[in-house]
Write a protein that binds this DNA or RNA. Structure first.
Lengths: 341, 341
DNA sequence: TACGTTTCCGAAAACCTTTTATTTTGCTTC
DNA sequence: GAAGCAAAATAAAAGGTTTTCGGAAACGTA
């Protein structure tokens, strides 16, 4: 047997104790309409004494607002989606908005199911977070509530999406290497079919071009996101240009593998080769030897910002388009200015 | 302006179309009470035609059940909490139960705030997931709804908790090494103030004792959970017993560091030293050279099981006590039977 | 036909709050 | 003292569903 819930205290009890009607009590508590200061105080006192908590269900039923948003993850939520999700949760949770978690696990059917459920539950808005920066199909068409996309942008230009600015971030990474005096910079990254890989390469190449520098090895070394690939890519890079003095990697895993393999081939990091990673995945970037200089995408902030914009949209102040959020270079030893000794 | 929501179709519309009263419609749709098969069909037909979705708010208001559970993370949710959380979400989401996500981020004040909010929203139950297996303060006392704890058990014996069976898991790990013919087995693990570290050591020692084998180096090497510590511990272990032929590590990070350092000191893994890790954190365990044999705690299953028990408790079939869930050894190259060549 | 049983259906209450429309109160002015 | 008016309070409706209970219809029996 579920334990018998003690009958909850309702606004009726408050009104009775304060000696007013429920209408007055409601208005007093919500600061609406005309109510004398003295009676308002009496109502508040009564509410506090009974530790009254309005029933959100009843309220939602009449107002049509549930103070609830759905958090829908398209692909299975993982390393990148989690921080975004937590950032969003943080933004909502500190207010009065609750977050309904739905992990569609990459299954379009599940996604539809969740979408129906969320709409049935009358959520006020929807935040869709992806696991990669590849654009994803829009779900906002004909939806009666606002939607924002985080990390993975919608493929529909009128939707509002928040993504890391990988082009600018990569530019910063490469400019950092240039500022350190490196002149033969290579770029190793993930599979070419990833938007992230292409954008990071684009940003890196643009920065090199602006500085009038060639790309070491003449071509971007596309491959996989793994440490294993990083090790393999080290050979490619070193063979293509034995004089290479810096490598900008598209992920921390690649960087970790590359550093390992470079050291095994007798190159010192950062003295002979400076290395910059991407993601600032701390379990990795703080454990490599030397610790990794890497680009942090500020994913929590991204999630938080997306949440704030959803909130604004719910209140009628909608934005649109793709918002590119700045990344931040975290400087550690693998690519750092010489310290004073 | 938020787009005007089209007036939702209510059970009134269904009843009108089917030519019955709303009471009959409700009973027909919910399979309750006496209603002729023919009228039931008519009601269902009407509901389908209008694609009627009952308003959960109105329903909850009268039934007192929200088909919603709170998922409360005590400490900041991270590597271990996430899979548990996703497992739970999966179990609920495939039913009709929605999950309200609340990340207290290790802040007791936030936790209280969330607890109040969840209770105000009349959730049917609560699942509390932790980030370590250390017991945590109970929140179930005097709560009108059932609570289950996942990963981090409650410190109150009458609460129901689900934790990985680290003692048995470690025993299995060590027995695996023994079965491979290893006789000088060391154990390197995390800080002694972690329940996980102590329990894993306990299981390892028990298995050695049962087999009549000594612990290489005579004492458990406690330290930290990091790769860095794994590297350092390798020296300790090799100095204490140069003939050591296996190391059971309390985490994959430790194992990764240890393998790296052992190789640098000229030991081959697994030929000279077999290594077993813990956690099966795949980004690490699949990337070490050789790939890591490691203990998987089945965290998703743990979360799913906890969710199922919460569900049972909501329906009045409550369990209690600490449930220890079995772990599963994942065999890769770092500690494997010789393959046929 | 009268009557007792089932079987099925519907009116109305209940859940709790907000909002609208209406009434009451308190005050000012003539 | 009446009229007028603004401010404050209340009654009642609305929101959508489930559930209780009474009543009607159908059916069989005397």
């Amino acid at each position: 047997m579920p334990p018998e819930r003690p009958r909850a205290v309702t606004i009726n009890d408050v009104a009775a104790l304060a000696g007013v009607s429920i209408a007055t009590a409601s208005k007093a508590l919500n600061g609406r309409g005309q109510v004398r200061a003295e009676t308002r105080d009496r109502v508040f006192a009564a509410a506090r004494e009974l530790s009254f908590q309005p029933n959100p269900l009843a309220r939602s039923l009449v107002t049509g607002q549930t103070r609830t948003v759905g958090l829908l993850t398209s692909d299975s939520v993982g390393r990148f989606g989690i921080p975004v999700m937590l950032g969003a949760e943080d933004a909502f949770g500190s207010g009065e908005t609750a977050v309904l978690l739905c992990d569609a696990r990459g299954d379009a059917f599940r996604e539809q199911h969740y979408l129906r459920t969320l709409l049935a539950r009358r959520v006020d808005g929807l935040i869709v977070v992806g696991e990669s920066t590849d654009p994803r199909p829009s779900i906002s068409r004909d939806l009666p509530i606002p939607v924002v996309y985080a990390y993975a942008p919608s493929d529909h230009p009128e939707d509002v999406s928040f993504v890391p600015d990988d082009v600018a971030g990569s530019g910063d990474a490469v400019r950092h290497l240039i500022a350190l005096g490196r002149r033969r910079i290579a770029h190793v990254t993930g599979p070419t079919h990833y938007t992230a890989a292409r954008e990071r390469a684009e940003g890196a190449l643009a920065a090199l071009q602006t500085a009038g520098l060639p790309l070491s090895g003449d071509r971007v070394v596309y491959g996989a996101w793994s440490q294993r690939w990083g090790r393999h890519a080290a050979e490619i890079v070193l063979n293509a240009d034995p004089e290479v003095d810096a490598v900008f990697c598209g992920s921390d895993q690649i960087a970790a593998g590359l550093i390992e393999a470079a050291r095994e081939r007798g190159r010192r990091v950062p003295d002979d080769i400076a290395v910059v990673g991407y993601d600032n995945w701390e379990v990795l970037s703080e454990e490599t030897r030397p610790p990794l200089t890497t680009m942090d995408m500020n994913l929590e902030l991204l999630g938080r910002t997306a949440a704030q914009h959803l909130f604004a949209a719910i209140e009628g102040r909608a934005t649109s388009g793709i918002h590119r959020m700045p990344c931040r270079l975290v400087i550690r030893d693998s690519a750092a200015p010489p310290t004073i000794r």
